[in-house]
Design a binder for these strands. Structure first.
Lengths: 322, 322
DNA sequence: CTGAAAGCGCTTACAG
DNA sequence: CTGAAAGCGCTTACAG
């Protein structure tokens, strides 16, 4: 049996309420009594039982982070900063890898309802139907999946547009787009929209492959693209894995980069956690993580939140553009 | 106010004990009653409050995972599998990035005492003094930091020995070792021991740099090594980041690999999460993660555990050896 | 198979 | 400033 607040109270000769007040650092405790209680706690090696206070306060101080997988540079980095930011507010982070499994998502919702966690950050979402997530403190990245779910995103449209124009100014005439299509409404689709708009603006035909794809299908998709549009001299790639696969394939095909083919990636390619020298639109992962956590905590506290936060990307020149 | 077990009991016209039994799937409930209760739960959209049952059962079903950083391929992969395995046993994982901060470690210990988590996996440890971690369900990877802390490791000594001999058989005559020294007792030191033993066995002088180093100091350490032992024609590198930095530096220096210089790495280098073609001793990360979780759960349950589990590495040939 | 009751270890009005 | 008491929402012997 661990020592409880009762033991401490008895030992210190005070009421348990007083001990509680000391634990919670309330000012309304006399210096004398406080000292007595502190000593008793030390003497008895007392640790307050968190489960009990959780129950009383109805808060767990835990949030869940749902990502597709953790062992992926983008999500790992995100997880890192989410944890760091949460910690600043006294929250812990439970990590959940959804692994494309839809149930994981509804599972988190029930965990909120069961009061296992106070709220959740959704980085993926497969839910199509509007669930009964009223009052559920949930926030998200890139995708709006409910009217009451605030989210953080980056300036997908503008950044893509800018990147494409950059490429075209450097001589790209046959510009393609390759991406993996999100399953649900997502700001990521803004990239495609930007691409199509730019093509229209320059009167260029669209060379696009943007399909829903499973992890592992990248190679096939890239092959498909390369076959369809063998003549491209500039490509915008959306997404990490795809970027890497595309770059590798392009190099293997014997194309000179950037002479024959310019490449710009949204997200860049990570090489040992360092963005390699692909020209890319870099998302402010740290800032996205911190903002999304702050949003969530506001929601948990019942404060007003901004429903859509757009953060600026950085355009990083690499060696894959002229 | 959320609906509680009381509401359900009243609605179903049964006692709260019965509702509890239904929730927990106990067999000792009549078919009739069970149905009534189930219906009531559905009708009232009841979710059992986990905090309350935690308090009663004195378990949180949460474990903590302490890693130096998550956004590093090794730890991210580990985190992924730890989460996956924990999930199978009905446990959630709280992620803690220690970031070299010693307090984080003792903090977790208090969190166990405070019953915020049921146990913890320590992948780093800075603690020198034996803490009062009796009865604390803690397990660890690679390093023994207490007599009662079971851990999982890989066959550091044998694998290193084998790798070095492989290199020597392919003609390496001036063999060096470069590593970052752990702060505390760790099985990682077995690699150095293996190196020294092999050198002794072959009558070769040791060319070694194995210092305690901070993240970010790798470049300087590699430079130091290269200057001291400019003539090496075979090097064993211990650790991810170091391997990558070393490989890059070696290439930049104009050395032909593997002609002028053979390299073998413990851990390999990750390129976009794919081990690149460096010859390496690969740790069975997934297996280590799963084993360590199972160890922890046994400890939590108070079962007997094996105090040291050694898993086999794989020797993977790449293009950095002849 | 089922209900009434005690109790898990706290927090928090309430009264003094 | 402090204590006694109620209660957070469950689980679990206990008795039937």
């Amino acid at each position: 049996m661990a020592t409880t607040i009762k033991d401490v109270a008895k030992y210190a000769g005070v009421g348990i309420g007083t001990v509680s007040r000391v634990i919670n650092n309330e000012k309304a405790v006399g210096e004398r009594t406080r000292k007595k209680v502190m000593d008793a706690m030390k003497e008895l090696k007392y640790s307050p039982n968190n489960m009990a206070s959780q129950l009383r306060k109805n808060e767990t101080r835990i949030i869940a982070l749902l990502v597709p997988v953790v062992n992926h540079p983008f999500f790992a980095k995100l997880a890192y900063y989410v944890e760091d930011e949460a910690d600043r507010f006294g929250y812990s982070v439970i990590l959940v890898s959804s692994q494309q499994r839809v149930e994981k998502e509804t599972e988190i919702i029930s965990r909120i309802k069961r009061r296992e966690v106070d709220g959740a950050v959704f980085v993926t979402h497969y839910m199509h139907e509007e669930q009964d997530l009223e009052n559920c403190p949930i926030v998200s990245i890139d995708r709006a999946f409910g009217k009451n779910i605030p989210y953080v995103t980056s300036d997908n449209y503008d950044a893509t547009k800018k990147a494409l124009k950059y490429m075209i100014e450097r001589g790209a005439k046959k510009v393609g787009y390759i991406g993996s299509k999100p399953l649900v409404d997502s700001e990521v689709m803004e990239r495609e929209r930007a691409y199509l708009d730019v093509m229209a603006e320059y009167g260029m035909p669209a060379r696009i492959v943007n399909e829903v794809m499973q992890h592992g299908e990248e190679t096939a998709v890239v092959a498909d693209f390369m076959e369809k549009y063998a003549d491209v001299d500039g490509v915008f790639v959306s997404g990490y894995t795809l970027s890497q696969v595309f770059q590798d394939t392009a190099i293997e095909s014997g194309k000179k980069i950037p002479e024959d083919l310019q490449i710009i990636s949204y997200d860049g390619v990570f090489r040992q956690w360092v963005t390699s020298h692909i020209t890319s639109v870099e998302q402010p992962i740290e800032e996205m993580a911190r903002q999304v956590v702050r949003l969530l905590i506001k929601k948990i506290r019942g404060e007003e939140t901004c429903s859509r936060t757009v953060l600026k990307t950085r355009f990083v020149l690499g060696s894959t553009t002229k």
